[in-house]
C-alpha cells in the first residue's frame, strides 16, 4: 500500500473461481430478514411512551411549572440564557478557537419571557386580574421587572417544596399573578396549542417553543431520569422500558461520562468536535498508518480465508 509500489490486490482476479449465485443469496437473505423482523415485532412490539403535554406538566408538577415560568421572566432559565440560535443572551459553546455556535447566528429567534409567558397571558382577555398584572409588568422598567422576578424566584426556591402558597412575603410585583395565570392557562390545555404557533397561522409543524419551554422545567428531566435516559446515565443509547435503544451511539455517549467532558460546561461542543474527528477517522481508515495495519497484526483474516490457505498454502506472517 506504500506509494509507488504496485498494489498486489488491484486488478481482476485470475485465480480459481467457484459458482456463487448472488441473486439467490439476495432472495434468501430477504426472506430470512423479513421473517426475522416479523418474529421480533410479534415477540417484542415497540416502545411508545406517550408524550408529555404542558397541561400534564402543569397539573402533575404545578410548583415546577411555576418556578420555570418565573425563571423565564427572570432570565435564568436554560432557554433565556441559551444564546444562538435562539437569542443573544450568551455566545454559546466553542471548540477551542472555533465559535461555531455564535458564528451560525440567531436564526431561530425565541425570546422566552415574551414567547412562553407574556404573549400567552395576553390571550387571556377574559381574566381582568391577569391583564392588569401583565400591563403593570410591561409598564415597569426592565430593572424593576428583573428585580420582581428574581426576588420571587429566590423566594420560591426557599419555600418548602417550592410551593407558591408558602412563599415568604416580599415585593414580587405582578410576577406571582402572572405565574399563576399561566399555570391556569396550561392546566386548561390551551397553552399546548398556543406555543406551537410559529407564525404560520392555522397549520403548525414546528414545536421549537413548547419543547424549549418543557425542557426548561424539571418535570421532563425527572421522567427521563427515571427511565435512565439522562446524559450522565449513558442515556443516548437507551430506550424507555426494556427495549434496545441505539447501541451504535455508545462511543458518543461514553465521552459525556468521563473527564474532561463530564465536568465541562463546553462538553457538547467538545464531544461533537471529537466525534466528528473520529467519524472522519473511520471514513479514512484505509489511509491511517497503524490503524490500517491492525488486520495484519491481529490475523482474524486467517480464519476468514482458512479454506483457501489450506488448499493453496498460508502466507508468511
Amino acid at each position: 500500500m506504500t506509494a509507488g509500489r504496485v498494489d498486489p490486490a488491484a486488478g481482476d482476479w485470475r485465480g480459481p473461481r467457484r459458482p456463487y449465485d448472488l441473486v439467490k443469496e439476495f432472495i434468501v437473505a430477504l426472506v430470512v430478514v423479513s421473517l426475522l423482523t416479523v418474529v421480533l415485532a410479534l415477540l417484542f412490539s415497540s416502545p411508545n411512551e406517550k408524550g408529555v403535554t404542558l397541561e400534564q406538566w402543569a397539573r402533575k408538577a404545578p410548583n415546577d411549572f411555576i418556578a420555570t415560568t418565573v425563571s423565564e421572566l427572570a432570565g435564568t432559565s436554560t432557554s433565556a440564557g441559551y444564546g444562538p440560535p435562539y437569542n443573544h443572551s450568551s455566545t454559546g459553546q466553542q471548540i477551542g478557537p472555533l465559535h461555531l455556535q455564535k458564528w451560525a447566528g440567531v436564526r431561530i429567534p425565541v425570546d422566552p419571557a415574551r414567547a412562553f409567558v407574556i404573549d400567552p397571558l395576553r390571550t387571556m382577555t377574559g381574566d381582568a386580574a391577569v391583564q392588569a398584572a401583565v400591563r403593570r409588568y410591561e409598564a415597569a422598567p426592565s430593572a424593576q421587572q428583573d428585580q420582581w422576578a428574581g426576588a420571587y424566584a429566590d423566594a420560591l426556591s426557599k419555600a418548602p417544596g417550592g410551593d407558591p402558597a408558602q412563599v415568604a412575603a416580599g415585593d414580587y410585583g405582578p410576577v406571582p399573578a402572572m405565574a399563576t395565570g399561566l399555570l391556569g392557562l396550561a392546566q386548561s390545555g390551551a397553552l399546548d396549542s398556543q406555543l406551537v404557533n410559529a407564525g404560520t397561522g392555522f397549520y403548525q409543524a414546528d414545536y421549537t417553543k413548547p419543547l424549549l419551554f418543557l425542557a426548561d422545567g424539571g418535570y421532563l428531566a425527572d421522567l427521563a431520569q427515571a427511565q435512565h435516559l439522562s446524559g450522565n446515565q449513558w442515556g443516548m443509547m437507551n430506550e424507555t422500558g426494556n427495549f434496545p435503544g441505539q447501541p451504535w451511539l455508545w462511543l458518543y455517549t461514553f465521552w459525556y461520562q468521563v473527564r474532561p467532558f463530564s465536568t465541562s460546561t463546553n462538553a457538547d461542543a467538545l464531544v461533537w468536535g471529537l466525534m466528528m474527528l473520529l467519524s472522519l477517522a473511520l471514513v479514512l481508515v484505509p489511509f491511517i498508518p497503524g490503524v490500517r495495519s491492525i488486520p495484519r497484526l491481529l490475523p482474524l483474516y486467517r480464519l476468514v480465508w482458512r479454506s483457501y490457505y489450506r488448499e493453496h498454502g498460508a502466507p508468511r506472517r
Binding site: G51, L100, A104, T208, W272
Partner: peptide, 28 residues
Amino acid sequence: NFDSQWISTQAKDGINATGIGAFWNVLD
C-alpha cells in the same frame, strides 16, 4: 412521543454547539 420530546431537547445542545442547529432544527 416521549422519546421524541426528550431526544430532540437533549440533542439540540450538541447540534447547536456545532452551529448546524441554526439551519437544521431538531425541534421542528
